[in-house]
């Protein structure tokens, strides 16, 4: 666990570049689609809930992002499947 001091002053073993990149990812998600971090978390949870009915999902690797493409903004989810549930 990082100490409160570390968290407040952003000290960690991560390089500052990685910190910047992560922070940027989140802020752009919000800028692009007006989706807040808590809302994104909820989207993740609900996608998981629905899909888990049918397939086993690698929860750690589930990645939901908001990306710019020509023509607008898309919500992209990359959902690694461990195996399809037997019916």
């Amino acid at each position: 666990m990082r100490s409160l001091f570390d968290r407040l002053f952003g000290r960690s073993d991560k390089s500052t570049k990685d910190v910047a990149k992560n922070r940027l990812r989140f802020v752009l998600m919000h800028d692009r689609a007006d989706i807040s971090a808590p809302m994104m978390d909820q989207i993740r949870q609900e996608i998981l809930a629905v899909l888990s009915k049918y397939v086993d999902i690698d929860e750690q690797a589930l990645d939901v992002s908001v990306e710019r493409v020509d023509g607008g903004v898309v919500l992209a989810a990359s959902i690694p499947i461990l195996r399809v549930n037997a019916k």
Binding site: S15, T16, K17, A20, K21, L24, L28, R68, V69
Partner: peptide
């Protein structure tokens, strides 16, 4: 690793 690399900028911008 103290500054975003070009690839990072590209990654983030799409």
């Amino acid at each position: 690793q103290e500054m975003l690399a070009v690839e990072d900028v590209q990654d983030v911008l799409g």
